[in-house]
Design a binder for these strands. Structure first.
Lengths: 218, 218
DNA sequence: CTTGCTATTCACCGCGCGGTGACAGATTGG
DNA sequence: CCAATCTGTCACCGCGCGGTGAATAGCAAG
């Protein structure tokens, strides 16, 4: 094929060709990062093999090889979720004395609200959870709720909810409220007619949240 | 091509061929119905021109002609939403005397919870709202929130929220909680660890909801 | 019957998707 | 040195999607 003098055609300075190093670990990481970035930025709708490969700058074949396809990749994201949560939501009481269960839940609620607002990946995952019930998203959902439950358990310490209140049900409602309001705001800057754009708007929301928590737990 | 005796190949009784009548109004309705059914049953993910046409048993071209494409069709769904709400959520007080704002909000919350649980189309629309911010879904969202706001206004009568409480923010949180919990349940029979399968589970949720409402509004 | 008009269908296009098999270049071990 | 193995790339497949232009079937008036 190549003529004998082919060498002369090679440019003296190779164009900056971004020489891909052969490094499986790095590539795996790049794929995982691209997947998380893509999911966080574009949402689950256009989340697919081709898009991830494009984002990672490699061939999609590698995703099949290293993760066994999208499912495996999603599972890998789920596996990261634990540390992800730990990194982003403080684990201590912030120097406050949480004397009552109400103190605790107020703080937890506000922390969770802020953390979710600041974390697009988590938001996209939550939106995914309520939109689809495939095996993929089920795994992801499990990982997320496990990480969350662990965090709450750690924070709870020895504080017990007041008698006569179904704390599990009430807390589920409270966290549901937070999740929905943050999702709605991320998409349309409002929720049920309540504007959620600037900091003042969010102050109102936080105040309402506190009021609800205090209304139930005192 | 066809031999002279081709006629003999025609079955004496034509197979029940469901002869489509030429009736534009009926076809338009069939398309709209198919769209609503499809959105309600399959969700917004696989909601497209082809799927709707298949569901309506007609050619997709008609959707372009009669509705100007998917956008127009979605808008038509939105236009229906007002009556849809009116049909499914009672407009009166159910024979109860709503003496306080707390009474009102308790009743509204429970009605909305049940209505949403019973209405897959609404659920899909809400899930769509928090997953995407296209123009399509924005229109739909507006129609829905307008219908909802109208209903609340009608129910409210002359009752005013207590002073010192940001009722708009609190109510937004409450409705957010309801929406998220119903969405989560529809997809995975639980929400934040709270099981939501049978009637007893939902009793718990309703009780928690009442407690929250009463905690804020007394 | 013919002439329109309208409702409806059909055939086709380009595209991006998920998925697969074969290949090329570097690395390593015998 | 060759052979095996690992990393990475490429070309290709079938499919269903959204979208469009042209043809066809039924009706109504002249």
């Amino acid at each position: 094929m190549a003529p004998a003098n082919a060498a002369v055609k090679i440019p003296l300075e190779m164009p900056v060709v971004e020489k891909r190093v052969r490094n499986r670990a790095a590539t795996e990481q790049a794929i995982l990062d691209a997947a998380k970035r893509l999911l966080a930025e574009e949402g689950f709708q256009n989340f697919g093999i081709n898009a991830v490969a494009r984002g990672a700058g490699c061939d999609k074949q590698l995703i099949y090889r290293y993760y066994g396809g999208l499912n495996g990749l999603v599972e890998a994201i789920g596996a990261d979720l634990g540390s992800w949560v730990a990194d982003r939501i403080p684990d201590d009481t912030g120097g406050m004395f949480l004397l009552t269960y109400g103190d605790l839940m107020e703080r937890l609620s506000l922390l969770f609200l802020d953390a979710l607002r600041a974390d697009p990946l988590m938001r996209r995952i939550v939106a995914w959870e309520v939109s689809e019930s495939s095996e993929q998203v089920r795994r992801l959902s499990e990982a997320r709720s496990k990480a969350l439950a662990g965090w709450i358990e750690r924070m709870r310490g020895s504080l017990a909810p007041p008698k006569g209140v179904d704390a599990q049900a009430v807390n589920a409602m409270i966290f549901a409220a937070i999740q929905h309001i943050v999702l709605a705001a991320a998409v349309s800057d409002q929720c049920s007619g309540l504007a959620l754009k600037n900091g003042r708007d969010w102050e109102k929301a936080a105040t309402a949240l506190k009021r609800i928590v205090r209304g139930v737990y005192g």
